[in-house]
């Protein structure tokens, strides 16, 4: 039961994870599509979960959960996340969000948080969000599926929250979109992840529409979110 409650704490919007600063490309999509509505949001969330999170961030998270607290193995996962993130705004955002989450856990004295921060500062790790989440949540006692569920929930709820804050959909419409996509998150969070390969870790993702939106928006004069 405790691990479930800890999962709720980690997923809670009141937990200072730093994710409020990132829209995961939604701000760019909305800027390029004034007709962006609840149906658009559901399609976008579905795409993010199915074509990026499922085989990229989620895989990195689970591999990090297994690799923790070994900084060399975590660094290898970080390097794979870095090499697979072609969009600078997403890549830098992932590292910044990882750093914010880690700072909170250092202050909460989460086991292993200090060592993670030292590994990022001294070089073996880059500190991408998925890697930091996997390492910290294992230290807190979350299982692999619990960690995946929290990360998946945070991705979709954070993206919904960003869309509501942009004024593009209302709070109720946002929750409708969230409800619509949660079954997909649940199904994917339960999928097995193969053991870490001996050769290169390769992450799979394909979200060109949202990536192009994030690339274009990165050069916009006025932005509410970091990506």
């Amino acid at each position: 039961m405790l691990s479930r409650l800890l999962s709720l704490q980690q997923a809670d919007a009141a937990f200072p994870s730093g994710s409020f600063a990132f829209s995961n490309g939604i701000e760019g999509l909305v800027a390029g599509d004034p007709a962006f509505d609840t149906a658009s949001l559901i399609r976008t969330l579905t795409g993010l979960v199915r074509f990026r999170w499922a085989e990229s961030d989620r895989v990195a998270l689970i591999l990090a959960h297994r690799a923790a607290p070994d900084p060399a193995r975590l660094g290898r996962i970080d390097a794979a996340v870095e090499a697979a993130a072609l969009v600078e705004a997403m890549r830098v955002g992932s590292r910044r969000n990882g750093a914010s989450l880690l700072t909170t856990h250092v202050r909460l004295a989460t086991p292993g948080a200090d060592e993670l921060r030292a590994a990022i500062r001294s070089g073996p790790m880059l500190g991408h969000l998925a890697t930091v989440q996997g390492a910290l949540w294992r230290a807190l006692g979350l299982s692999e599926p619990e960690a995946a569920a929290v990360a998946g929930y945070q991705l979709v709820s954070g993206t919904v929250s960003a869309t509501v804050r942009l004024g593009q959909v209302g709070a109720i419409q946002g929750q409708q979109a969230l409800q619509a996509v949660l079954p997909l998150v649940a199904e994917i969070a339960e999928r097995p992840v193969p053991e870490e390969p001996d050769d290169a870790i390769v992450l799979t993702g394909f979200t060109p529409l949202i990536e192009i939106a994030a690339m274009r928006h990165a050069r916009a004069d006025l932005r509410l979110f970091a990506n």
Partner: peptide, 10 residues
């Protein structure tokens, strides 16, 4: 040294 490594599937 790997600089870029991405894979897409659909």
């Amino acid at each position: 040294t790997v600089l870029v490594r991405e894979r897409a599937r659909i």
